[in-house]
Simulated assay, not measured.
Amino acid sequence: MRPHVPVLLATLLVAHQSVAAESFDLQALITAARQEAPITIYAPSGKIVDTAAAFSQKYGVKAEGVKINGAAQLEKMTREFRAGNVRGDVVLTGDPTAALAQMMPLGMVENWTPPDLLGQIPATNRDPLVVYGDPVVWSYNNETYAKCPVDNIWALTDAKWQRKITLQDPLTKASYLDWFNQIEHHYDEQMATAYQAYYGKPFDRAQGSATEAWVKAFAKNGPLPTDSDGSASEAVGAPGQKEPFMGLISTAKYRDVAKGKLRMAICGSMQPFVGLSTPAFGLISAKTKSPNSARLLIHYLMTEEGIANQTIDGKVSGNSTIPPHAKEASGVHAVWGQVLQYQSTSAPQDFDARQRWSDIWRLNFTR
């Protein structure tokens, strides 16, 4: 069971603050790292394999990248920590809520922010360290439609869009359950404002939150749940469709737009938001035997070179000075101000609310 220790969580978030930039010596860190055992980094993207190889070549510090998704990350790192047999020295979180609600309070992982990059990393991205934001965006088929056919998410609850919206199944993608709670806690007024804009009348607060009302209505409208963003993007962007789906799609799938395989664009006019950005925290195992190598890898990930194969997929670096990748295909940076940002402060509540949102979705979902 997750310990209900918000004070402990807050303490852990600040316990590993970096030393001042003027006392940090990158070359000394590199030298120390070269004396340590090889390290392994767990990440939800298979691209981590190439990142680790490039890091090893650059610094002469052996690192291996292993693709492991969020739920498996938590299970694996928990077992390793309890056994005192750490294999994953660094983790790029696939489940940030679980990291904040379980890994950090239990002392399994530690935060470290590169001191020499503090001026480039906004305060909100430092504890825990956000390596990148991973956006999903409302998308439409721009071969069929000259512009996005929807400009308000309440329209997605109308009969016109019944069984014509797709997204990865919230019952198997915990981040969507977290986002339902995030929106209710932090952005519910925007949901109520969008309701009034669409229906021409105020949202009736007697129903509860506007977010819960939307989730229920959306589920009842029979969206197509998929097992991956790839399947959802095919439903939206496959060419030659007369009535294509709309969907909530990872910007990474816009790679196939660049290759000419799909026809998609972001619904930039969607109210109250065009997408959601879930952070990948870069955390170090508290029991790693190679702490300098782990810190050097974290430092590398916070540079343009180290994060390039993620930013090409539309992920946004936690280092604010790193520009959009020249070959990024979705154009998400143009609408970044309309993408909701994950708020770490409610992570324990988000984690505890997963069952509630799962039940709401399951009870209202109509095939």
Rank of each mutant, 00 (worst) to 15 (best):
A71M: 09
S277F: 03
W361M: 02
G107D: 10
A258L: 08
A197G: 12
A10D: 12
D229T: 13
G230W: 04
G314R: 06
A33G: 13
I68N: 00
V215N: 05
M103V: 11
M246I: 15
W336D: 09
Q190T: 01
A194T: 09
T51K: 11
I360K: 03
L156M: 15
A280H: 06
A53Y: 07
K315I: 02
A258S: 14
K173P: 00
L100P: 01
E212F: 02
P115W: 11
D313R: 06
A192K: 13
K173H: 08
A219L: 05
I121N: 02
D178W: 12
L167V: 01
Q207H: 15
N292E: 15
I266Q: 07
R354S: 00
D352W: 06
A334Q: 14
G240M: 05
Q102F: 08
F24W: 10
K259Y: 10
N292G: 04
L9R: 14
E184W: 00
Q162D: 10
V5R: 13
A294V: 02
N181Q: 14
H16E: 15
V236G: 04
G119H: 01
N364T: 03
V91I: 15
D169R: 05
P128N: 07
D50T: 14
T166R: 03
L167W: 10
D151C: 05
L276Y: 13
A174G: 08
G94R: 07
A286N: 12
G240L: 04
T97H: 02
